[in-house]
Design a protein around this nucleic acid. Structure first.
Lengths: 216, 216
DNA sequence: AACAACAAGGGGAAAAATACCCTTTTTTGG
DNA sequence: CCAAAAAAGGGTATTTTTCCCCTTGTTGTT
């Protein structure tokens, strides 16, 4: 059979309009066929657990999905089907999530409004060479490896404190809100200033927003 | 001719993949036909200036486009073809731009990852009733009309001050940076606190980010 | 000329934030 | 169980932020 020689692709995306049109686009390339489409990570994993995954050449995995999102799905794949090749798809270029998808094994990351030509190039590249990264993503990777030595981990209470620090509350008010002594809050603040290399509460707010601890 | 009775739709969007699939979707509804597609506002306006626009029933207009973006195109339509019905399309839900599109005459605002059913509902609704707003957009409109009496206008120096306030500089440092007395900076701050109904510099930073005076 | 509106700046004081150094209690790894 | 680390809190001093009330020019309007 002729179709059996085509590269087999699976699309996991809750957005039907997009996933349908992506299937049409891929078909139009000629060398590929979309063997399945799933609307979230959960149903995709259910499928994998009951089917042979050896004949899957590529997975196009949306990041933002209900039920089980792209990152969780990616982590499951890393643990259970590490041989599968995945290109992550998303509408935004959130650095954190891109890095997380890639460190969990994604072989490429494309924005959903990427042009058809780049889509084709990326799909071909991942299937043949094993990876495809746009300039955007490469830049982020370089950023990361340059600043990865000092990885910052925040504790749960620090996160709560930071969220409160991003309001017009005074530290005293934050302390009573968190049922802690103002002095303890002082301690949190000073330790964070030190860790994050900042000097003022303004710096803390900017850090929190940049790293999406709070949203505007 | 049968097709002439169908509602005529124009798509203006630079993302071919999306605009193609949107055309297919619209065709699948049966009652509509996509008579033209354009990749930016410029070529669309060129077309309008050389063609009769009376037979256009609806325009689906992307917000983010090269050459001439959705807002500029919307403003041109408001001035030159106010009778045309437009649904704005965008990947993000930026309140400012949504409000601007609507105040410039857009009859609806849809996120690009809206489901096909909602797309159909919105298109039908705008053609028949003249408008369609999702809950998201309605909420924003209510917000606006409730806070629109006191429209806030910031002067150039205030903008500069706000930008500086969103750094770890002290007011004294900001003053010398702006070649003004610290007391003048005090004045700027107090007038802004009053105008923006905030009480602390943190509130100022949050306001600035929310209103995109500074970007993170 | 008289008036309002406004930008720039000042004095002084209270509140909040920041810095530095310290003790006690709890948790935790070995 | 013990030692070490981490969490919670205290004391005190300095700097920064915030608030309120005030003066002096400038500009534009009637």
């Amino acid at each position: 059979m002729k179709t059996n020689s085509k590269n087999k692709i699976i699309i996991v995306d809750d957005h039907l309009l997009f996933s349908q049109s992506l299937e049409l686009l891929i078909k139009s390339f000629g060398d590929y066929e979309v063997i399945e489409r799933f609307e979230n990570g959960k149903v995709f994993i259910d499928y994998l657990e009951n089917h042979d995954s050896e004949l899957i050449d590529l997975i196009l995995l949306d990041v933002n999905m209900p039920v089980l999102d792209g990152l969780s799905t990616m982590k499951w794949l890393k643990d259970n089907r590490p041989e599968l090749k995945v290109i992550a798809l998303s509408v935004n270029d959130d650095e954190d999530i891109i890095i997380k998808m890639i460190t969990n094994g994604a072989k490429g990351y494309l924005l959903k409004d990427t042009s058809p030509e780049i889509f084709r190039e990326a799909i071909e590249c991942v299937i043949e060479k094993g990876f495809y990264f746009t300039e955007l993503v490469s830049g982020m990777l370089i950023n990361k490896v340059n600043s990865d030595n000092k990885k910052i981990s925040l504790k749960e209470k620090e996160i709560v404190f930071i969220k409160h620090a991003c309001t017009e509350m005074t530290y005293k008010e934050i302390a009573s809100e968190m049922c802690l002594s103002p002095k303890t809050i002082d301690g949190y603040r000073e330790s964070l200033f030190d860790k994050l290399e900042i000097k003022t509460r303004i710096g803390l707010v900017l850090y929190a927003i940049k790293h999406k601890i709070v949203c505007v």
